[in-house]
Computed example of a mutant assay.
Amino acid sequence: MCRVFVCSCFGVTDQQIKEHAAAGACTPRQIASVSKAGTDCGSCVRTIQGLLGRGACPRRALIEKGETALAETALAETALAETALVETPLSEAA
């Protein structure tokens, strides 16, 4: 398997960008929120824009159909899956 790194700073590959896009991330900012790609030196932002293309956004298509809630849920699920945040109450952290 050949890995093509789009973001050297955070080790994000073109395949990961494509997976995020398929899951509903339509802009470089949305890609950054789930992967950090483009948030350090910024040299990969244009490549990310190129990978995202124009008009091929599943989330945008859902919004145009009036299914905004479904699109937002899909994006939120993608973000949670990528960050895998685990919140610990302050009382347990001490």
Results as ranks from 00 to 15, higher is better:
Q16D: 10
C57A: 02
G53S: 04
Q15V: 15
Q30L: 07
C44S: 08
I48N: 10
A37R: 06
G50Y: 03
K18N: 10
S35M: 07
P58R: 05
A71V: 01
Q16N: 06
L51T: 10
S33P: 00
S43C: 12
A94L: 13
K36P: 00
C44A: 10
E67V: 00
R60Q: 14
K18G: 04
A61H: 10
R54Q: 13
I17P: 03
T68N: 08
C41R: 07
A23D: 02
L90R: 15
I48A: 05
G55Q: 10
R29E: 14
Q49H: 07
A56Q: 14
R54V: 14
I31C: 07
R46A: 12
T39R: 14
T73Y: 02
G38W: 00
H20P: 00
A56E: 14
T47S: 11
E67N: 11
T39H: 04
K36Y: 11
L90V: 13
E77S: 11
H20I: 01
A76K: 14
L52Q: 08
R60F: 02
P89K: 12
A23W: 07
E67Q: 15
V34T: 15
A37P: 05
T27K: 03
G53L: 03
E19G: 03
T73P: 00
T88S: 06
V86T: 14
R29L: 11
G53Y: 02
V45T: 13
K18E: 15
I48K: 02
I31V: 15
S35G: 05
L70R: 15
K18T: 12
C57T: 07
K65I: 02
T88D: 03
A93K: 10
I63M: 09
A56L: 07
A23P: 00
A56D: 14
P58G: 11
L51P: 01
V34P: 03
K65T: 09
T27M: 05
E87M: 08
E77G: 04
R60P: 00
E77L: 13
Q15F: 08
A74Q: 15
C57K: 01
C41Q: 08
T83V: 09
L85W: 06
A22K: 14
A25K: 02
L80K: 13
E72L: 13
T27V: 06
A21Q: 11
T47Y: 09
P28D: 05
A25H: 06
D40Q: 09
L85H: 09
T88E: 08
L85R: 11
V45Q: 08
P89W: 08
I17V: 15
S33T: 12
T68Y: 06
G42I: 03
T68A: 15
A69K: 11
I31N: 05
Q30R: 05
E67C: 04
G50W: 02
T78S: 15
A32R: 04
L70T: 14
A32D: 02
E82W: 05
T88W: 04
T88I: 14
T88F: 08
G50S: 04
A22G: 11
Q16K: 13
A71T: 01
V12Y: 04
T78F: 01
I31E: 06
R29V: 10
I48L: 07
K18P: 01
A84D: 12
Q15N: 10
A79G: 01
L52A: 08
T88M: 10
L51I: 15
